[in-house]
């Protein structure tokens, strides 16, 4: 394996190789973040709703 700068140069194709890996990383990481955020928000909202219904109906199970 050559030097780090040689590796980063990608045989002159750095301007194409690194953006390609970058695009893939941004999309893949972006979906992880957005998926986890949405899931947490929805589970919180559901728990809050279930709690409120539970208190109102005096303990009758709804789901």
């Amino acid at each position: 394996m050559g030097s780090i700068s040689e590796f980063l140069a990608m045989g002159g194709y750095a301007a194409y190789v690194w953006p390609a890996f970058g695009v893939a990383a941004v999309v893949l990481v972006g979906f992880v973040i957005s998926t986890l955020r949405t899931l947490r928000a929805r589970e919180r909202a559901l728990a809050a709703r279930e709690g409120a219904d539970h208190a109102e109906t005096g303990g009758e199970r709804t789901a």
Partner: peptide, 10 residues
């Protein structure tokens, strides 16, 4: 050459 490495994500 090295541009073939794009294959591994494409």
């Amino acid at each position: 050459g090295e541009s073939v490495r794009i294959m591994y994500v494409h």
